[in-house]
Design a protein around this nucleic acid. Sequence first.
DNA 1: AATGCGTTCAACCGCTGTAGC
DNA 2: TGCTACAGCGGTTGAACGCAT
Length: 310
Amino acid sequence: MGRAPCCDKANVKKGPWSPEEDTKLKSFIDQHGTGGNWIALPHKIGLKRCGKSCRLRWLNYLRPNLKHGGFSEEEDDTICRLYSRIGSRWSLIAAQLPGRTDNDIKNYWNTRLKKKLLGKQRKDHGGQNHSRRPPKQHMQPLIESEQNPPAPPISTCSPNPPESTLPSYTTPETNGQDSIKRLLINHHHHDVSLMSTSAQQSSFRTECLSSFSAELDDMFPCNHAIKQELFDGYDCFYGVNEAAVAGGITELLAIPDQSINWNNDDGDGGSFMTNSVMYPPPMAASATSSYQASMHQFSYQAGQIHLGML
DNA sequence: AATGCGTTCAACCGCTGTAGC
DNA sequence: TGCTACAGCGGTTGAACGCAT
């Protein structure tokens, strides 16, 4: 049993809108508003269009104060910066760009900006392979970025986060992939807070996890097993921040409602619920630390991260 | 001029979240 | 609590267009 269709598909016109249809829709909404019911609207006007189609036409084209095309450098940068933080949340990105629609931005990103950035990236890196990924993937950058969005705008699209609020971090194994790591960390530190519900946050994390296969490869060069574990969709951790690699575990992000037990070689220990503490504070940097959640154990020892089944 | 190919972008599709009952 | 209907969203499609051959 599927959902009933929102309109009678057989009696609904599809395809490009005519100027007459545009005029009808615009003048009706100008006079009466949408009435809060897009499904009923086309019937009131006498348009043989699906309500969803009317809504889209209004929002993306007829609505006042819309800008089309001609994205400025500033807008490019904003799109880039937001994409690097929140991925393809086009409506959220559009909300930061007055006069732009999510559809416009999505199209612009997919058709121009992404290519522009990838082109720049290749130029900036002189075609060198800084990654450990197989050569085949480098020959297909667009496909790769499609499969692993968000495409990392490495050193071309200034992430421009409010740096002062970010933790400082360095790693011995950084080799040009800092921006990817920074990008991932920025996700946690700034944009999970944009999500209003824990369900959104959870799905956001899950989505990020599935999106970052390649980036995780770069992030955990010292231990590919971790990357594999993270990416293979297990149930407790979302990710581990850079500081874990650098010099002690200071942050562990997990999906909500997980009870995390922790202890370290200083004899400290305890537990916390992941949804009660966004950035779990109890763990101080230590030469050896370990954390457990559900079926998995995560530990940091002598500069190496280990993840295993309990 | 004809054809093929790549690009752009408006529009559609299908899914999810949520309000109302 | 479960169901239904709707709004909203992101991914995808395909027509139109431009350019190269």
